[in-house]
């Protein structure tokens, strides 16, 4: 399987623990990456649109309240979770290969 784009990977990862609304996803991605990945609204919703078309993410019904009717919640589908797991496996294999070549993160060097 081809590597996922960073935006797709981070959105899927943010949705892994459970459903989130768009702004929650943006904040989670910012936190997961230590502020390195800041998804703009256009990029985020464009990514969600793509993921919904692929059936990797779906909108969760029944969350809109009168006070917050513009909020919509999203969650991973089974297919989305499988794709995320496959990507993590791919990355894990890459890291193992790198380690076998004695390439280690700077923070881990003694």
């Amino acid at each position: 399987m081809a590597a996922l784009t960073p935006a797709v990977f981070h959105v899927l990862l943010a949705l892994a623990p459970g459903e989130r609304h768009g702004y929650g996803i943006r904040k989670d991605v910012l936190e997961q990456t230590g502020g390195a990945v800041r998804l703009g609204p256009g990029t985020l919703y464009g990514t969600l649109q793509r993921l919904m078309a692929l059936d990797w993410v779906e909108e969760t019904p029944g969350h809109a309240t009168a006070a917050d009717e513009r909020r919509r919640y999203y969650r991973l589908t089974r297919l989305g979770r499988r794709s995320l797991e496959a990507e993590v496996e791919r990355m894990d294999a890459l890291v193992r290969t790198a380690r076998s070549q004695r390439i280690v993160p700077r923070g881990s060097r003694s």
Partner: peptide
């Protein structure tokens, strides 16, 4: 089409 689907959420998030 995109605006109808996500415009309100984008405005709310901003």
């Amino acid at each position: 089409e995109f605006r109808r689907e996500f415009g309100d959420q984008m405005a709310r998030d901003f």
